[in-house]
Design a binder for these strands. Structure first.
Length: 209
DNA sequence: TCAGCGAAAGCCAGAGTTTG
DNA sequence: CAAACTCTGGCTTTCGCTGA
């Protein structure tokens, strides 16, 4: 239900809720105030459930971003934290156990294509791949096709037998560091602008908003 | 090119414990 | 006794990859 919207927003723009929580934490830290779930939540009480704030704070603590100031406290006692690792305005992505999830493949592709300039899908996949996060060429190819359809990429050399299509990013279409994502509904969503920039029209449903 | 599968992230709700 | 806070577990939705 409402969860769906929250989740998609999460994927699309790094969790607005978490972003707000992170900003609040940094603000409290800047003021030299102790950081507790209650304090953070109090600053945003109208919009975010407290459990969500606690969830994120616990993840940050597990990940080493926050340090518990009163580790000997008993259950039921307010836990106070200190910001020991400020990574900037962008809210860190952490799992519940504190580990950092791998960078999404789309993001690697998006950053890489801007750097290498002129490329084929295979070249982009190779360049964007890392030992930790290899990216399938198939994935890169589909991504390129969507970006081209949405007008982000121009074809510098059409495909011919044995020669793959070469693409290049329109400099003016670099909308920001957040990678446009292909949603399950086969729409291309640009989190930088917050807009759906392309919708693949299927045979059965010619529907468009 | 399309469809399905598996894995992961984020969110919510309930239960238990401690303090005033 | 009541209120407040923390902790744990489960649910929903989406993404990325593989195979036909």
């Amino acid at each position: 239900m409402a969860k769906r919207h929250a989740t998609s927003a999460t994927a699309a723009s790094a969790a607005p809720n978490r972003q707000r929580i992170w900003e609040t934490i940094r603000a409290l830290h800047a003021d030299g105030q102790p950081i507790s779930a209650r304090d953070v939540w109090a600053s945003m009480v109208d919009t975010i459930p407290r459990t969500r704030v606690e969830d994120y704070i616990r993840s940050l603590a597990a990940g080493g971003y926050l340090k518990l100031r009163n580790p000997d406290r008993k259950r039921g006692v307010v836990a106070e934290f200190e910001l020991i690792r400020d990574v900037g305005v962008e809210a860190p992505r952490v799992r519940r156990d504190g580990t950092v999830p791998p960078v999404p493949g789309r993001e690697q592709l998006w950053r890489t294509l801007r750097i290498i300039g002129d490329f084929t899908a295979a070249e982009l996949a190779d360049a964007a791949s890392t030992p930790e996060s290899p990216i399938a060429r198939n994935t890169a190819n589909e991504y390129c096709l969507f970006l081209r359809a949405a007008g982000y990429l121009q074809v510098t050399r059409p495909s011919s037998p044995g020669v793959p299509t070469r693409f290049r990013l329109f400099p003016s279409r670099w909308t920001g560091p957040l990678a446009p994502m292909i949603q399950r509904t086969k729409q291309l969503y640009d989190p930088n602008t917050g807009k759906t920039v392309y919708t693949r029209v299927t045979k059965t449903e010619g529907g468009e908003p």
